[in-house]
Design a protein around this nucleic acid. Structure first.
Lengths: 144, 144
DNA sequence: CGGTTAGTGGGTAAAAGTGGGTAGCTTATT
DNA sequence: AATAAGCTACCCACTTTTACCCACTAACCG
């Protein structure tokens, strides 16, 4: 399971290192180092799926009527941008320009574990998000 | 499965390069590099079908009563414009003028994977579409 | 302190994408 | 029917991008 928060730097070529602990989860729990990266439609960040989780999501999508407007919109935003990446020998992946733009990633990059997926944020966007999530939680008083 | 988003430029002769990863899907999953390109009736873009998917669609159309008004309209818009294209040695296809006009494609061209087909957009039309799909999704709250 | 592992930077060969010339076909014109 | 004009497919050459490899630094751990 992906958990924890790690900050890595994207280099000039657009490559970022996947945190070692996430790579380990991919290998141990999923037997496959490659991931699918897409836009997250609900926040300005990217979401990375292990292959198996991505396929699970796709079967759910395909089960729905294909001319459902929401399904079309989902395909356009999420499936469209989905691309499979195998990390290089150093454990890095190349994030393409369109996804970098979407998540506003320039250099400082934050990897955030989210159990069966993980998120990729620009560092300042992440800080903003974190602050607002915190204050939201404080108002809601969940009894965890 | 076609997924991912790629931007290529159409040259002065009207040729665009099919992204390498899509060509690979055509060869690997469909054993046939050629595609059928038509108008997409629901959005100002073109839709490319692998031969097999196109035939599947046609059998569905033929199963319907041929004087169904929707079927007639479908034939007029989609079937009429459907044409088969085999990429040249460099992996490019020539998009004819009438289809270019329909999708407003002049130079910057975006290829958008949509699982068993892919879409071809003008770059600025695509950006507009993406933005509206995003806001649609945020309102709808799909539980994917 | 040495050794190991994570993270970073950069060179280079291959692949993907782009531009343009030319021959051959189709279509138009006299 | 012959010639001209335009289009298209094919070929070759060039540029850009990406994948892969190697080397270095910094952090962690015994």
């Amino acid at each position: 399971m992906f958990q924890g928060e790690y900050t890595n730097n994207m280099d000039d070529k657009g490559r970022v290192n996947i945190p070692a602990s996430f790579r380990e989860v991919l290998l141990k729990n999923y037997d496959d180092p490659s991931i699918v990266v897409t836009r997250d439609p609900y926040a300005p960040c990217l979401r990375a799926y292990p292959q198996r989780e991505w396929k699970r999501l796709l079967t759910k999508v395909l089960a729905r009527s294909s001319n459902d407007r929401a399904v079309i919109a989902f395909k356009r935003t999420v499936v469209s941008s989905a691309q499979e990446y195998a990390p290089d020998k150093q454990g890095r992946v190349l994030i393409p320009q369109n996804l970098r733009d979407y998540a506003n990633i320039s250099k400082g990059t934050v990897f955030v574990g989210s159990l069966d997926t993980f998120e990729i944020w620009d560092v300042s966007a992440w800080e903003a998000q974190l602050a607002s999530s915190l204050s939201l939680l404080q108002d809601m008083d969940l009894d965890f």
